[in-house]
Amino acid sequence: MLLIHCPYCDETLPELEFAYAGEAHIARPVDPSALSDEEWRDFLFIRTNARGTHFERWRHIHGCARFFNAARDTVTDRFLVTYKAGESRPDLTVKESAE
């Protein structure tokens, strides 16, 4: 069971309070009708399936109920950072080189 830092509650809490919510930073197109079938397919189905750092969404479902974003290493299962929904993808190179 992982520990997850909720950026809204500012607390690190057991995974059982959270629900996974898929890959992050896949914004719904403002005008879906303007997209080609291929573009829409990519939006719907194509995911990065990263080995290593993965940007993903979680929801603090049994807590503040907010969706938020996280960068997690899919090899070690380690959370690198969590941040609020709507915030841009953090630059992890700085953090990594410091380690």
């Binding site: 914004a27 719904r28 929801r59 479902i61 907010r66 969706f67 929904a85 709507g86």
Partner: peptide, 13 residues
């Protein structure tokens, strides 16, 4: 409810 909250919080805040 989860699906609605998802759209509301992350697509149409």
């Amino acid at each position: 409810l989860n699906m609605m909250e998802d759209y509301l919080q992350t697509e149409w805040p």
